[in-house]
């Protein structure tokens, strides 16, 4: 059980690191397609980590996992596509 709680701690640290990186990209004035792709990729990694580990969807029917991870991917992909089109 200790391993499970350590795993949750590791996920939390990953989320903090991702948040810090996203904040740094914004604060340091990074903009453009490369920065936006990185920002959305970090959001995808953070989102999947929350869905699988905190929401504990890892190990449940793929339909449930797919519905939530699919939601995340569609939302981020539409925003990335809209960004590219708007450049």
């Amino acid at each position: 059980m200790k391993t499970a709680t350590h795993w949750l701690d590791a996920i939390w640290l990953l989320l903090l690191l991702g948040t810090g990186y996203t904040w740094w990209l914004g604060e340091s004035g990074h903009a453009g397609a490369g920065a936006v792709t990185a920002i959305l990729a970090v959001a995808l990694v953070k989102g999947v980590a929350v869905i699988r580990e905190f929401m504990a969807l890892r190990g449940v029917r793929l339909l449930w996992q797919g519905a939530v991870i699919g939601w995340l991917m569609v939302v981020l992909a539409v925003n990335l596509a809209a960004y590219w089109k708007g450049i």
Partner: peptide, 11 residues
């Protein structure tokens, strides 16, 4: 986690 980058950071 989605809202923060979309509204506050992405530019």
């Amino acid at each position: 986690i989605v809202l923060f980058p979309l509204v506050y950071v992405m530019r």
